[in-house]
């Protein structure tokens, strides 16, 4: 038996992963468990704790604000997931054509994704600013759709839609990249065969492109749901009045009447949903 070589290899492997796994264990896995623990306590900012059993959960489930934020999150998720997927797909199909300045265009449409949230939210706020913004200028002064200038971001109901539009703008490039990579790998002869079979461009899209993209679409949708469930900065910095779940958690934990135990409880529930989604992603999408 020559297990020495195998043993050496596994020893080296463990040594190399140890630092990263240690840090992740200490700062991700442990906090997840610690969070569960905290959710049974009344927790102060300074670290003081009193055991309250399931109080945090019962209070949370009786809190209309919680259900409101769940509702807001659901609308936000539906809007952003559909928006980024559709726009990402459209952009990928467009950028897969050959035309002049294609490389420039491909680079430019990635910009929103890489820009720091903080450096673009003010631009968006300016666009929708009731006094100076171009949105009100176009809607009121140019198109005369309404007479009054509106503060779209000031009002939580309309702000939700601005936030959704912002998220689509910021994150469709990533969906676009995934789609484009797949489109580029679709063999050309498939299209040629379809063209010879008499399919028009729409038929080629429907019968060749879409079936090829099925798995990528599933990947994009699921990944969008997973990331956007946790999305904080994009929403909070643009319109802090749009209370999606992460924002609600943040307010519970760090603003006004601090209730970190309740925040922990929200996180526990959200994590369960997330684990379900990740499980779905790993089992159904990655295995394809």
């Amino acid at each position: 038996m020559s297990s020495v070589l195998i043993k050496n290899e596994s020893r080296l492997g463990l040594k190399l992963v140890a630092p990263a796994v240690g840090i992740i264990g200490l700062l991700v896995i442990y906090p997840i468990l610690f969070n569960l623990y905290l959710s049974f306590f009344d927790v102060q900012l300074n670290g003081n704790k009193t055991f309250v059993g399931l109080d945090n959960y019962t209070q949370l489930l009786g809190n209309p604000r919680y259900y409101h934020s769940v509702g807001v999150s659901v609308i936000y998720l539906i809007g952003t997931v559909i928006g980024t997927t559709v726009l990402g797909l459209a952009a990928a199909i467009l950028m897969n054509q050959t035309f002049r300045f294609r490389n420039l265009a491909r680079g430019l449409i990635l910009l929103p994704y890489f820009a720091p949230v903080i450096s673009v939210v003010f631009g968006w706020q300016f666009i929708f600013d009731p006094v100076n913004g171009i949105y009100n200028h176009v809607v009121v002064d140019v198109l005369n759709l309404t007479n009054e200038r509106e503060n779209l971001i000031g009002n939580p109901d309309s702000a939700l839609f601005v936030v959704i539009l912002f998220d689509i703008w910021k994150h469709f490039p990533i969906a676009y990249l995934l789609f484009l990579a797949k489109l580029q790998s679709v063999p050309k002869d498939l299209y040629e065969a379809a063209a010879i079979d008499g399919q028009n461009p729409w038929g080629r899209f429907w019968h060749v492109t879409l079936p090829e993209l099925k798995f990528v679409i599933a990947t994009v949708v699921l990944l969008r749901v997973i990331w956007n469930l946790n999305r904080f900065e994009d929403v909070y910095l643009l319109a802090p009045n749009v209370e999606t779940l992460p924002i609600f958690t943040y307010y519970q934990a760090f603003a006004g009447i601090v209730d970190q135990g309740a925040a922990a409880a929200i996180s526990v529930i959200q994590l369960l949903v997330l684990v379900g989604l990740i499980w779905l992603y790993v089992r159904k999408v990655l295995k394809w």
Partner: peptide, 23 residues
């Protein structure tokens, strides 16, 4: 697989425990 999982657990879920840990 763990890396994938950890990669998808967003920071928001950890803000309370991480803050409490550092306290």
């Amino acid at each position: 697989n763990g890396v994938l999982f950890v990669y998808m657990v967003g920071g928001v879920l950890l803000m309370v425990p991480l803050y409490q840990m550092s306290v």
